[in-house]
Amino acid sequence: MSTLHTVNKSPFERSCLDACLGHAQPGDAILLIEDAVIAALSGTAFEGKMADAAKTLKLNVLGPDLAARGLDPAKVIKGTHVVDYAGFVDLAAGTRATNAWL
């Protein structure tokens, strides 16, 4: 069974997104929350890396954290699912373990 990886820091500040992508296995789910949500948007310096990741991983971003920061959910990288907290719970319930990349 797959793992849910959560990332909560902006890749412009910390290396946790890179660390997460370097260890996640094909089919795993990634959920960007808190300050990490910026990485879900198209047009950032990380778009290429995230688009590559989306080929093997299931990318998700927490909508309330986008909204809180004035970031447009319509502008997320193709293939990224915008979820609410209920969706977060579903992701955690649907995977074997949750790994928070703090």
């Binding site: 793992t3 370097g22 260890h23 373990a97 790994n99 928070a100 990349w101």
Partner: peptide, 18 residues
């Protein structure tokens, strides 16, 4: 290796990070 570490992590039931 990083690849081996990723595979090892994938087999865990409870992962605790700080």
């Amino acid at each position: 290796s990083r690849a081996e570490m990723g595979k090892l992590m994938a087999g865990m039931d409870v992962v605790l990070t700080a």
